[in-house]
Each structure stands twice: as structure tokens, then as C-alpha cells.
Amino acid sequence: MIRDALLIARKDLLIEWRSRVTINQVAPLGLLILIVFAFAFDANRNLLTKGAPGLVWVGVLFAGVLTVQRSFTIESADGITDALRLSSISPVAMFLGKAAAVGLQLFVLEIVLVGGAVVFFDSRIGDPVLLIAAAVTGTGGFSAIGCIYGAMSLGVRVRETLLPLLLIPVVAPILLAGTRAFERALDISTQAGWNWVGLLGVMWGVYLAVGTLAFGPLLEDG
């Protein structure tokens, strides 16, 4: 099953790599979000530095919705879902594979966004280990729950608007916990940061469990 999951992840990443949509469109969009925030806050450097963790996560949120959408568009476009169902790959492996592929893309995106925050918002990375841990657990949870909703909106014509409406309220706690952990890692607050990483880990586990249970029924005759 792990091998099948890796196979799916590899397939998704290969498609992404060949089309370069994430690199050429989603990542620049994330940076653009950071720049637009600077306009919105009148380039007030203090405010931007203080808000950087939240702004980075908002960027991840929007870019993440696009990445999930993209990941399931490539499935439905060529009828791959049916093909995969006919092959002996289990839905659980499909779920884990897709979540891993989305998570890896988002993680790369987060590195770009944190880099953007360092350049544009004058953020200082005080605790790189905490930063990476929060990024990994946060994106893990996000991609897991994102893939559940991605499968839910498969084959739906209004997906572009439906997916964000369904997904954003559900990922709100990830945004909150991720922001708090980043605040500590970027030396903005002195509150404990690892608690939040723990919470992100718990959410990741919950969403993985939910996805493992729900992905099969979602793909059946859908």
C-alpha cells in the first residue's frame, strides 16, 4: 500500500513538474499575496513584520486551495479516477499519495513564502527547527483535509467556488495554530511554540484518519 501511495505521489508530482503550473503560477501568486498585503498595510514595516506569520499562512491557505483544486482537476480531466479505480490501487493509497504530493508542493511554497517574508517584511528566523516543524505538520494537515474536500468536489461544475467555501472554515484551526507557532519561530512572540506544533500534529492525525475512512466512499460512483 505504501508503494502504491508513493506511486500516486510520484505520478502527481511528475505531472506537476512537466506542466510547471505550481512553480510558474501558484508560487508567484503566493508572493504576490505578500506584496499586496504591503499595499494594504501602507508598507508599514512594523505592522508587516508583526503580521508576517499570519500573512504567510494566509498565502499558504489561498495557494493551497489552488493546489488542491489543481491536483483533482488533473484527475477528472482525463478520467484518471476511473482508470485508477480499475487498477488495484486502494483508495487509502490514493488518498495518502495525493496528500503527500500536495503536501510536498505546499511545503516548497512555504519555503518561498517565508523567504518572501524575510525579504519584504524584514522577518528574522529565530528558531529554524520550530519553523520547519510547524511548516511540516501544518502542511501535512492541510493537504490531508484538502484532499478529502478535493475528492468531494470531483466532477462538480462549481468547484472553483465550492471548494474554498467548504475548505477554508475547516482549515481555520491550522491557520491559527500555524500562525502562533510561526510567531514564536520568527521571534515575534515569546509564547511557547512547540505546543502549537503538537496541536498541528494532532490535527494532521485526525485528518489522515478521516481521509482514510472517507476517501473510498467519496470515490465510489462519484
Binding site: Y149, M152, V210, A214, P217
Partner: peptide
Amino acid sequence: KRAAIAALVSSVN
């Protein structure tokens, strides 16, 4: 089926 799963995920969340 999708709606039922969405309701449960929201409730868990």
C-alpha cells in the same frame, strides 16, 4: 454521501 461526509468532517472539526 458527499454531504454526509462533509457534515461529519465539519462536526469532527
